[in-house]
Computed example of a mutant assay.
Amino acid sequence: MTTAKKILTFALCLTCLTAGITGCAKDKSSSDTKIAKSTSSQTESSDSEKIKELNDKLEKLENTLSNILGEDIFDPADGDGNVNGEIHPIYDDTAVVEAYKSGDDSKLTDDKDKYILKELKKAVGEIIKDGMSEYDKEKAVYDYVFSQTHFNDDSLVAISDESEDDESYNPYGFFHDHSTICVGNATTIKLFFDVLGIDSKIIHSTENGEHAWNVVKIDGKWYHLDVTFDGGNEAPDYAYFNVPDTAKDDGSYPWNKEDFPECNSTDDCYICKNAKKLDSVYDIPERIKKAMSDKGKTIYMSLDVPEGAGSTAVAEQVTNIISNFYIDDYNVSSTPVIDAEDKVCFGISLNSADGDDSDNSYDTDNALGIDYDKLSKAFSDALGIDYEYEPDYSDNNIMG
């Protein structure tokens, strides 16, 4: 499940527990409440114990939500209007990697490192098979990390009573508690890659809040890999699996480009590798309809860049198009649009949910030369929905 859904779940929990505590306080001053009626035999002492127990749970939830967000949500903003958050350390996996490769764990003095090593060996044995390519190993690790850390509705694993220590920022939190924030995901993935001989680094961006992800070298080329920002629910949608700099460099989480290799290839980008070519933009609605009938969760598509249009302009226009509709009973979301120079690649995820209205106005150049009446009719014919797109573009139509 996505980080956003985690945040929503915990926010609801906070609300419920706060209401519960307030209710308990009212019970002590009034005998006319529902709880007082059903618990008339309880003593004032037991009420106090219950309030203390709920307060303890509330504090745990506050800490968990703060860790997910990477900031203290209950501290006042500073003079600039920003909320200062904790910056988590990057786990040093050197000792565990050496123990894994040598088969000798006698130099490991930390019990948590010993636990990480034990679980790492078990996991590698389960997911890595003989004959796998670097890409296959990378995807196996990605799928495993996604499946083990995404939030489980049946259990508030992030506030398990098994440990009072928050380890969500390192591999111990991953293996032991199955609960990680972005730093925990990135350090766990790097740990796997280090023992598998796959070159990788961690980008730890702290300028606009905290976020961490990996860059990985596959078949001699570097890519961004961000499992935390994967938009999938039960299954990943690979929104940030081997994407180029252009897909990550949107200003949200800046990094020092001089410290990391350039990521400019799309050869092993999951979205591009799995995209089915569309003849035109008007085929998008029909492709979505087919995915709905096949109960597909995420569909990947590509469009050729028309001669003279420019891939950047086309990518921007496609981004606007696929962000500009909703379907009743579905939660529709899109992956980044990947600029692959001669084509653009993108994905659309379909999950059962209530749709939300979107702002239907954009200001963009018509790089694809779209007849929007025709596009609206295509959506109506295929999906039975109204699609009103009224761009305000200049007379300088790239396709004439």
Results as ranks from 00 to 15, higher is better:
Met301Tyr: 11
Tyr115Trp: 06
Ser31Asn: 12
Ser31His: 11
Ile73Val: 02
Tyr142Cys: 11
Asp357Asn: 15
Ile218Cys: 01
Leu117Ile: 10
Ile218Leu: 14
Lys122Cys: 07
His178Ser: 10
Met399Phe: 10
Ser160His: 07
Ala212Arg: 05
Asp75Thr: 15
Asp354Thr: 15
Ala4Ser: 12
Val314Asn: 01
Gly131Asn: 13
Val337Gln: 01
Ile68Leu: 15
Gly347Ala: 08
Asp259Thr: 00
Lys60Arg: 14
Thr364Asn: 13
Tyr240Gly: 02
Asp230Val: 07
Trp255Ile: 06
Gly125Cys: 04
Ser361Ala: 13
Tyr240His: 10
Ala212Leu: 03
Ser394Leu: 08
Asp357Gln: 07
Ser333Pro: 01
Ala19Lys: 05
Ala309Glu: 03
Ser48Leu: 08
Lys50His: 06
Val183Glu: 08
Asp136Ser: 05
Thr64Pro: 04
Val145Met: 09
Asn264Phe: 04
Glu59Asp: 10
Ser40Asn: 07
Lys28Trp: 06
Asn366His: 02
Phe175Ser: 02
Leu303Gly: 00
Asn331Leu: 10
Ser179Asp: 14
Thr9Met: 06
Asn67Tyr: 09
Asn208Val: 02
Gly251Tyr: 11
Asn366Ile: 01
Thr266Phe: 01
Ile203Leu: 11
Ile288Ser: 10
Phe260Trp: 03
Ser352Tyr: 13
Phe346Pro: 00
Ser334Gln: 02
His150Gln: 15
Asp357Thr: 08
Trp255Cys: 04
Lys295Gly: 05
